[in-house]
Amino acid sequence: MDTTKKTIILFSGDLDKALAAFIIANGAAAMGDDVTMFFTFWGLNVLRKSVAPPHKKSFLQGMFGGMMPKGPGKLGLSKMNFAGVGPKLMRRVMRQQNVSSLEELIATAREQGIKMIACKMSMDVLGLSEDELIDGLDYVGVATYLGEADEAGVNLFI
């Protein structure tokens, strides 16, 4: 088998973009590739738990924490969001078309051993602590991501 490596940066916290990232990542892993996904800024919201233990945060970080979506079920669409109705309609159409939900794609990514790394710096900026995100992540800086990208034949920024 011709194993190559792919890296994907998920910067966006939009449902549609997160879906694209996880479909590509799962497809690559199914084709035998090593895949690393680097989550930074709004992309970290995809990894948030819907319920997390309370944390002492600064006023601004508390505002970020309260206003940002808590996990895949709360993400909006990059287009036609319609104040939150858009994602519900999108999910309905996806179910009708037998497309996996974002939650299922994240679970599949973990089953397939896709490496998920989270940008510690943007976690600090947004006031997100490790226990507010799903388990099994590595918390890293840009050098770790760049090291992974150096080994990869494909790198996507989403």
């Binding site: 199914a30 035998g32 037998n98 996996s100």
Partner: peptide
């Protein structure tokens, strides 16, 4: 059957 991209290649793997 009934799965959409990338379901079939996941199943093949």
């Amino acid at each position: 059957r009934g799965t959409s991209c990338p379901g079939p290649i996941l199943a093949a793997k």
